[in-house]
Amino acid sequence: MGRYWRTLRRFWGTALATQLEYQANALIELLAVALSLGGSLLLLSLFFGPGRELGGWSWNQALMVQGFYTVFDGMSSAWLRPNLGSIVTHVREGTLDFVLLKPIDSQFWVSLRTFAPAGLSEVVLGLGLAGWGAHQSGVVFTPAVLVTVLVMLVVGGVILYSLWFLIAATSIWFVKTWNATEVLRALLASGRYPIEAYPAPLRLLFTLVLPVAFLTTVPAEVLLGRASLPLLALGIILAAGFFTAARGFWMFALRHYTSASS
């Protein structure tokens, strides 16, 4: 375990050093994050007007959902996209060979090899927005509520990671999966609005099949004290299930890995 921890520190240390080689990039990304969040808020505001609500959610409550969406979008930029996006490159260029020949878990390597700090600013912004929306909605932050929200954010993170990883792992066969992860990103974007804003069939889809509801709507409902215990349990079970599936699928995919020639 100590070896994995030391490796992770070295991984992220080199990732930071790489970022410092291209400082201008980091600034541009920060600007892009701010602009994108501004655009999202403007779009969201179009749904609301005097006396108008979205699926029973008030403007302040919807801000919480938007905030959690921003947290997960930041997590994608900081962690998922740089790592899982490079699995394709590893397969195409054959450098996955080097990963597989290291005496360390290959899923650990490809999932945590690098880190893009620019995405962290989005996470912080998102948390701030969710907190502000909650405060405006009159939420009282008790330790119990905060712990539950944290657990549900972890559940959401695990679900998102596992879905993304499942898609990325198919690059072992298809080599090009960039489009598939873009579809996933678009689906994640559907999580920026409360789940109740969608018609019933989509609600079912977003809860059970592609559980984006657990990413954004459920943590907001926890804050509002509206989440039922069975729903939280379902989230935890889904997260465990998706993670197990991702793990199993990776092992299966590696048995079919043929390695790029010479």
Binding site: G13, T14, G94, D97, L101, P103
Partner: peptide
């Protein structure tokens, strides 16, 4: 160990020393 003349494991943008430190950690 495997060395391939056509592929590289070193991190392109960083000095080799950084890649060596990563390898040291991975191999414990």
């Amino acid at each position: 160990t495997l060395v391939m003349g056509q592929k590289q494991q070193l991190i392109w943008d960083l000095p080799p020393m950084d890649s060596l430190r990563v390898n040291a950690a991975v191999y414990g």
